[in-house]
Amino acid sequence: MRARVLLDTARLLRRRLARSTRVRLHGEIDAGNADRVAHLLTASLKHTKGPLDIDLTAVPRLSRSGTAAFVDTIRAARTTGVPVTVRNANPQVREALHDLGLERLLTFTDDTPAP
């Protein structure tokens, strides 16, 4: 009986460890809020055992100074071995991340259905 309880506990633990954390950001990300966004994202890293999924559906613009939030997050994620996915980034946001070379360190995905 004890082995069965341990096996069930191991399965539950594996499921918890496999879960990802999704953070949905809203509004422009610029110098005025980059520090708060960086704090939110890096704090999210501390509470996940799986991938960090950043949903940018509602982010219309990412300034060059706003990209600092992602640099800090990626640095922390790489240190802890947590993969980071950026979801639904519009072309301007992708270009801002690309200009810093961050696209090599991120996975991009898009939930928009194909026409």
Rank of each mutant, 00 (worst) to 15 (best):
Leu12Ile: 14
Gln92Asn: 03
Leu100Tyr: 10
Arg78Lys: 04
Ser44Pro: 07
Val59Tyr: 05
Thr79Gln: 11
Leu7Ser: 15
Leu40Met: 09
Ala43Arg: 15
Gln92Ser: 06
Ser20Gly: 13
His47Phe: 02
Asp35Gln: 09
Thr9Asn: 12
Met1Asp: 09
Leu6Ala: 14
Met1Trp: 06
Leu106Trp: 06
Arg22Thr: 12
Asn88Lys: 02
His39Trp: 11
Arg36Pro: 01
Glu28Lys: 05
Gly50Trp: 00
Leu102Val: 13
His39Tyr: 01
Ala76Ser: 15
Pro113Arg: 14
Arg19Ile: 08
Val37Gly: 06
Ile74Tyr: 05
Val84Asp: 04
Val93Leu: 07
Ala96Cys: 02
Pro113Met: 00
Pro113Leu: 08
Arg15Pro: 11
Leu52Arg: 01
His47Ser: 12
Gln92Phe: 09
Arg16Thr: 11
Asp30Glu: 10
Phe70Ile: 02
Glu28Cys: 08
Ala68Ser: 05
Ala77Ile: 06
Leu52Ala: 02
Ala3Leu: 10
Asp55Trp: 11
Ser63Glu: 02
Pro51Trp: 15
Arg15Glu: 09
Leu62Arg: 02
Arg36Met: 12
Ile74Met: 00
Leu100Asn: 04
Val84Leu: 07
Val84Ala: 03
Asp99Gln: 12
Glu95Met: 10
Arg4Met: 14
Arg19Asn: 04
Asp55Phe: 00
Leu97Asn: 11
Leu40Gly: 01
Arg104His: 07
Gly50Thr: 05
Ala31Trp: 06
Asp99Pro: 04
Pro51Lys: 07
Thr48Glu: 10
Ser65Asp: 10
Thr73Arg: 07
Ser63Lys: 08
Thr107Phe: 04
Val37Cys: 05
Leu12Asn: 13
Leu17Thr: 13
Ala114Glu: 01
Leu102Trp: 14
Lys49Ala: 11
Leu56Phe: 02
Arg22Pro: 03
Arg2Cys: 02
Lys49Val: 12
Leu97Lys: 07
Pro51Cys: 05
Thr85Arg: 04
Pro113Ser: 14
Leu40Val: 13
Arg78Val: 05
Thr79Cys: 00
Thr79Ser: 07
Thr80Leu: 13
Thr42Pro: 05
Leu6Arg: 11
Ala96Ile: 06
Val37Ser: 01
Pro83Val: 07
Leu45Thr: 05
Asp8Ser: 10
Pro83Met: 00
Val93Tyr: 08
Ser63Arg: 00
Pro113Trp: 06
Ala34Thr: 14
Arg61Leu: 10
Ala76Phe: 08
Gly32Asp: 04
Thr67Asp: 03
Pro115Gly: 01
Gly50Pro: 08
Arg87Tyr: 03
Leu40Ile: 06
Glu95Ser: 13
Asp111Gln: 15
Ala34Glu: 12
Glu28Ile: 01
Leu106Lys: 06
Leu7Arg: 15
Asn90Ser: 03
Thr57Glu: 04
Ala77Asn: 00
Val59Pro: 02
Leu97Ser: 14
Ile29Tyr: 02
Ala76Cys: 09
Arg61Ala: 03
Phe70Asn: 08
Leu62Tyr: 05
Leu45Lys: 01
Ile29Leu: 07
Leu7Lys: 12
Arg75Asp: 09
Lys49Tyr: 14
Gly32Cys: 02
Leu7Tyr: 15
Ala114Val: 06
Gly66Ala: 03
Val37Met: 09
Arg87Ser: 11
Thr48Cys: 11
Leu97Ala: 11
Leu25Phe: 00
Ala38Trp: 06
Ala114Asn: 08
Leu41Lys: 06
Arg78Asp: 11
Ile29Met: 00
Leu97Ile: 10
